[in-house]
Simulated scan of single mutants.
Amino acid sequence: MDVLFAILIGVAVIILFFVFRNVQKQKHVKNLTEEQFKEGYRKAQLIDVREPNEYERGHILGARNIPLSQLKQRIGEIRDDQPIYLYCQRGSRSTRAANVLRKKGYTGLNQLKGGFSKWTGKIKQKKKGY
């Protein structure tokens, strides 16, 4: 019985550790509704962290494409003296991008809640050549 209790305590500690770690990561990035995002993104660096083919199919007007897969190599393209507005398709890649930026000392991190899939504002699409 004591062994089972010790195992349960150990599992609970591990679960709490991961929950706490996830909550800490979320504190450094603000999840903004579309309305909140629209209020501030024009005065900030707007970065689409999706892959180029996703970006070309449609992106928020004014966004730069710095894919999460290239972020560490291209981090010098991002200014640290302006707010940063991130988005991806649904929100998971922009959260990871915010964590990379936070670890490099960036602040003022914001992301679009629900990602581009929830965006109803203006978009730009690359014209297909025929």
Rank of each mutant, 00 (worst) to 15 (best):
K127M: 12
T120V: 07
S94T: 01
I60T: 03
I123K: 14
K30W: 10
Q73H: 13
R21P: 05
R21E: 14
Q73N: 14
R21C: 01
Q70A: 04
G76H: 02
K38T: 06
L61P: 04
N110R: 02
R90P: 01
G129S: 15
E35L: 04
Y85T: 04
L86E: 00
W119D: 14
S117H: 14
Y130F: 15
R93H: 07
P83L: 03
S92Q: 11
R21D: 12
F17N: 07
R42V: 02
L16G: 11
Q73E: 15
I78S: 05
E54Y: 06
E39Y: 07
L61I: 14
G40Y: 08
Y55L: 01
G115A: 09
K118E: 15
I9A: 13
I123G: 13
N65T: 06
F116Y: 15
I66C: 01
P52Y: 03
L8H: 04
R79E: 13
I123A: 10
G58L: 01
N53M: 03
S94F: 06
Q26W: 08
G62N: 08
K38V: 09
Y87M: 04
K43P: 02
K128W: 11
D81S: 04
R21Q: 12
I9P: 07
T95V: 05
R64L: 15
G58H: 00
V29H: 12
N65K: 09
G91L: 00
Q36H: 08
Q45I: 07
K30L: 14
F18H: 13
P52G: 00
P52L: 03
N110F: 13
I60G: 03
E35P: 00
P67I: 00
Y130M: 13
K38P: 01
Y130D: 15
F5G: 03
K104C: 06
G76Y: 01
E56K: 13
A97H: 02
D48H: 10
K128A: 09
K126R: 15
Y41V: 04
N53K: 06
A97F: 01
K30C: 02
K25I: 11
A44V: 07
A97Y: 03
A12Q: 02
S94Y: 07
K124S: 12
Q73F: 09
G10M: 02
Q111N: 15
R79V: 06
Q24D: 13
G10C: 06
L71G: 12
Q45E: 05
E39V: 05
L112S: 10
N65S: 10
V11A: 12
A6P: 01
N110C: 01
D81G: 05
G62F: 11
Y85P: 04
V23D: 11
L109P: 12
S94C: 01
G105C: 09
V11D: 02
N99C: 02
L109H: 10
K128M: 14
T33M: 09
K104S: 13
L61V: 14
G76Q: 04
Q26P: 04
T95M: 14
